[in-house]
Design a binder for these strands. Structure first.
Lengths: 211, 211
DNA sequence: TTTGGATAGTGCTATAATTAACATACCTTA
DNA sequence: TAAGGTATGTTAATTATAGCACTATCCAAA
């Protein structure tokens, strides 16, 4: 298999396709087509085929795709064949919401440890997982061989938090703090900035006329 | 001012620039340059200049940019000169987290109404705002002339929720439900899918070798 | 067995976005 | 007042992404 660069947009769409296929499969549908998938997720049929073509041939010409098969393939491509151990740092309102978010476990992401700096929160249990003091982060994350860290701490301590996570051996970080983080290139980092999302909306609502 | 199409990536970066400039301004720094901004947010200087060039000339050749000025300009561009009335639908853990998120108010987004379907939650107050029954959504949102809706309900009721929001006159929607929504083209819609973000990470961690 | 309809896979074209290079303008200093 | 240094604004080139059209393949029905 060639290792040509895959656009990130393609990965995002694959993730959406797989979710769509899960729904379709649940309805008992056996076969689908690029056109149906396209309708279901709001892209063009050509785009669907193009995205899949990066990874191989999963359909049958003249027929379409087997729903279960294609779903399974995409899950594999996305690395969702196995369970992922996730650690969550920061148990504010957002951290609490993330720790109880059903969508994670459904897709194989299991929160195996939770940390916070606030003494009042330490020792409490969230969905069966005890909140530990931040000082134990390195030991526990190493022990569990956790690969993914979620950062839901205030911006002021976000950089030191990711530094700790990286020292502990995680290779991917999902950051919710509204700040630009410095990480070495081998660490995968994604930022979810809630305010930025609203600001893209306001720009578009202004019809790009405000300025 | 010409109305050429602005890339969405540019808007996202502008939002990040403005946040960066707020920090820089707070440090008492008067003047900055495209290079410094680039360093601060992790893009190239040319990118910074290009992004700004879509909207006008905000700097002085040979000198750089006045921090306060440039920040003000970008805020204007993003439509952040005024306060935005926002309504929140769904008071699960995520909705609760969003309703108390400081980053929104800081940037001029004020949650003026909150709705939920669960009778037990109705009447409770969150940050001084009373949770109202979903049946009152249309009336209240119209009354307040609210422009932005945040959807934090389960996927199964997300489509009917946005339908209600649109009937009530909102023009922009930020959706957290993991489902593809149908909205008319004049409505601005952005999706924040938490699981998708993790899946992009796992794909990259797998080094694109898993498949 | 052959033909028609349908749909995946693929190469090419066009569009968009990023990067790089250059010319312009401003401030400072001698 | 003139010259040098510096950083912007802008144009050109490169790269990346999406869209389209065509070809190959399969199934079903006559």
């Amino acid at each position: 298999m060639k290792t040509l660069k895959i656009p990130e947009a393609t990965i995002i769409r694959l993730s959406v396709y797989s979710r769509h296929l899960t729904d379709v499969d649940r309805k008992g549908i056996i076969t689908t087509s690029s056109g149906e998938i396209a309708d279901g997720v709001g892209v063009s049929p050509a785009q669907v085929r193009k995205d899949l073509a990066y990874f191989g041939e999963f359909g049958t010409r003249g027929v379409g795709y087997n729903v279960k098969d294609l779903r399974q393939h995409i899950m594999r491509i996305l690395g969702l064949g196995v369970e992922w151990s996730v650690t969550l740092v920061g148990v504010g309102n957002l951290g609490l919401a993330l720790s109880t978010y059903k969508g994670f476990r459904d897709r194989g992401f299991v929160i195996t440890s939770i940390f916070d700096a606030d003494p009042k929160k330490i020792g409490t249990k969230i969905e069966g997982v005890e909140v530990l003091p931040i000082e134990q982060l390195e030991t526990v994350v190493k022990q569990n061989n956790t690969q993914i860290g979620i950062v839901a701490v205030p911006a002021s301590v976000a950089q030191e938090t990711v530094d700790k996570l990286i020292k502990s051996g995680v290779s991917a970080i999902l950051n919710f703090a509204p700040i630009v983080l410095n990480v070495p290139p081998e660490i995968e980092l994604r930022n979810v900035d809630l305010a930025v999302n609203l600001e893209v909306l306001t720009f578009n609502v202004c019809g790009q006329r405000c300025y």
